[in-house]
Amino acid sequence: MISEKLLNGALIAGLLLVVLHAHLTDAPFTITLATKVAILAVAGVGLNIALGLGGLVSLGHAAFFGIGGYAMGILASHAQSYVPLMQSPVLIEGTKSMPVIWLVALLASALAALLIGALSLRTSGVYFIMITLAFAQMFYYFAISWPAYGGEDGLSIYVRNGFPGLNTLDPIQYFLVCFGVLVLALLVSFRLRTSPFGLALNAARQSTARVQAIGQNPFRLRLTAFVISGAITGLAGALFADLNRFVSPTMFSWQTSGEIMVFVILGGVGRVMGPLAGAALFILLEHLLGGVSDYWHIYLGALLLGVVLFARGGLVGVLTEGRSGDD
C-alpha cells in the first residue's frame, strides 16, 4: 500500500500529465474534461469542509453551486447586453471580468450559506439533511419561475469571461486558471484542518458536549465552516458556468447536490485530496461508461452502493488502506 502523501502527489501530477499530453497531441476535448474535473473537485473541496471536517451532511450544496453559476450568468448577461444591473441609487453594471465575478459569487454564496446554515444548524442529524435538501430545492423552483434570467431555459453567455493577461478561450489557459483555483482551495482546506479552528471543529464533530465544556461554541464553529464551505462551492459554480458558457436551474437541482456528495465519498470523506480523486473517477466513469451504455447511471449506482457497503474510506482510503484517515 502507498502513503497518502504519495497518492496526493500522483493525483496532481496525473491531472497535469493528462492535460500536457492532450495539449501536445492537440486534443482540446480532453483538456475540457480535465477542466471539468478541476472545477468539480473545487466544489467537492467546499463540501468536504462541511462534511468531512464538520460532520455536516449537507445535501443542499447545489444551492451554492447554482448561486455561483447565476452570479456569473447575471453579471455577464448584463455586460453582454449593455443594460446596467441597477441604476439607482448607485449605478451597477454587468462585468466580464472573472476576478470580479468570483468575488461576487463568493460573497453571494457565503451570504446564502449564512442564512441556510443559521436556520438548518438549529437542528442536527437527519433533520439537517432534509432541510438543506429542501432549501436547495427552493432555489431550484425560484430559478425556474423567475423569468428575468431565462427561467427554465437558462442563460447563455456568448463569450467566456476574461482574466487579466490570459486568453480564457484557449482551453489550456482556462484549465490553468481553474487548476490554480483548485490548488488554492486545496491549500485553504489543508490549512483549515490543522488550524485551531479546524481542530475545534473536528472536536465538535466528535463530541459536542466536550467542546462546549471547554468554552467553545459548536453552533458558531459549524456555521463558520458551513459558510466557508458554501463560498468555495459557489466559486466552483461560477467556474463551471464559465466553462459551459451557460447557466440553468439544473445547477440547483437535487441531482447536483447528490453528485457533489458522490465526488467527496468516492474519493474518501475528510481526506484533503478525496474530492479530486472522486471527481476524476466520476468524470472518467461518465466518459467510459457513457460510451458503453446510455444507462451508465445504473453502473454508477451499483459502484456507489458497493463503495458505501464494502469500501468505507473511498478510493483514497482503499489505496492507502485507511492510513492517516480522520477516525
Binding site: L304, L309, R312
Partner: peptide, 13 residues
C-alpha cells in the same frame, strides 16, 4: 451519511 449515499445510489439504479 452512509444511508443517504446508499439510497441515492438506489435512486440512480
Amino acid at each position: 451519511l452512509d444511508q443517504v449515499l446508499a439510497t441515492f445510489a438506489l435512486i440512480l439504479i
